[in-house]
């Protein structure tokens, strides 16, 4: 059994392998990397670096994509927004 570390993904605690990269995590989550943005400890990552960036205990990862929206739907959007969810 490989050693695991605790990280935070989209605001939720999650365990992952100690030697995992961002790319590994995305594959584990079955997230296609096209049209996805990844922020690691507030640093926006280049897509080509996903496989080169290893994860460390306590890392905070945000994985974002596009959803329907053209106009904000009032205050509840603000509550849902990841910036405010913390």
């Amino acid at each position: 059994m490989a050693e695991t570390i605790q990280i935070q993904v989209n605001g939720e605690a999650r365990a992952c392998r100690a030697d995992a990269t961002v790319g590994d995590l995305l594959r584990d989550l079955a997230i296609k990397t096209e049209r996805v943005a990844v922020e690691l400890n507030l640093e926006i990552l280049d897509r080509k670096d996903f496989d080169g960036r290893s994860l460390h205990a306590g890392d905070r990862l945000e994985i974002l994509s596009f959803i329907g929206g053209g106009a904000p739907m009032g205050s509840h959007v603000r509550e849902r927004g990841f910036v405010h969810a913390e």
Binding site: E12, I31, E62, I67, G69
Partner: peptide, 20 residues
């Protein structure tokens, strides 16, 4: 031209479809 918002990917329920 269609506008879209940027939000967290749902990582708990991956069955959800994506608008794009």
């Amino acid at each position: 031209v269609v506008t879209v918002a940027v939000r967290r990917v749902n990582i708990t329920d991956r069955s959800k479809e994506n608008l794009l």
